[in-house]
């Protein structure tokens, strides 16, 4: 099996065994996903608001999952010094990074889809008619969302490997504030009248692809020496 996929498989296995992290992720989904959708869906009606809610809230939840799991895969491994052993393996630094990004993105995306299902289930339980997501929204869920998560995980992994302990602590605070900001933004977008068209979905897909390419390009600046000398 390809070395990158071996790393990815190990990350998935490790995340699934990290009960505390999984519990935090599920609590976050229920608190932010469930309660946000409850409050918004009870105040609005019809399929339009549901599409808007899923379109904006689900990627934010996915990014949070990616943040939560990438700390396990990149930061924890660096703080513990295990990454140094991994850097001595026959894999290139890029293969290790890619493997970890895949390994974090898969469970984060899986939980994100669960969150989307939860929101849809709640919407249907609150509505007297059956509410189904639109086709553009389904395309968004299956293309843009995983790419956004992968790009975020890649970027976070890059930063966590590159930075020292203190800088990573500052980064963690910045990410939490950014997530709160994103959640607020997604709430603000809700009900603002915009519709989830193919153009909107295509644009966000293009942004996700560009972000992923930019993140991948950034890894050229990753360097074993930089990682080793910033191990606490």
């Amino acid at each position: 099996m390809n070395g990158m996929l071996i790393v990815a498989q190990k990350e998935i296995r490790q995340i699934l065994k990290s009960r505390n992290v999984l519990a935090s992720a599920i609590i976050f989904v229920i608190v932010f996903g469930g309660f946000s959708s409850l409050s918004t869906l009870t105040s609005e009606g019809g399929g339009g608001p549901l599409d808007q809610l899923v379109f904006t809230l689900v990627p934010v939840l996915g990014i949070f999952m990616g943040y939560l799991f990438s700390s396990q895969a990149f930061l924890r491994e660096k703080q513990g010094g295990i990454v140094e052993t991994l850097l001595c393996s026959p894999l290139s630094l890029r293969e290790i990074w890619m493997g970890k990004v895949i390994g974090v993105t898969v469970p984060a995306y899986g939980l994100t889809l669960l969150a989307a299902a939860l929101i849809l289930g709640l919407a249907n339980s609150l509505s007297q008619m059956t509410l189904l997501p639109s086709l553009p929204l389904i395309a968004h869920l299956f293309t843009t969302v995983p790419l956004f998560i992968a790009a975020t995980v890649g970027l976070l992994g890059f930063a966590q490997l590159l930075l020292g302990l203190r800088e990573n602590q500052i980064l963690n605070f910045a990410i939490i504030f950014a997530l709160i900001f994103l959640l607020t933004m997604s709430q603000a977008l809700f009900g603002s009248g915009f519709t989830i068209s193919w153009v909107v979905v295509g644009s966000s897909l293009a942004i996700a692809i560009l972000l992923l390419i930019a993140t991948s390009w950034l890894t050229r600046f990753l360097d074993k020496e930089r990682i080793v000398i910033t191990i606490p």
Binding site: Q14, G80, I82, T85, S89
Partner: peptide
């Protein structure tokens, strides 16, 4: 990268995962 296949390394950290 491939030459590292011929080398085994045990650093200060054991390079093993507590959760596995």
């Amino acid at each position: 990268d491939r030459l590292r296949r011929r080398v085994g390394v045990l650093l200060e950290n054991n390079g093993i995962y507590d959760r596995l």
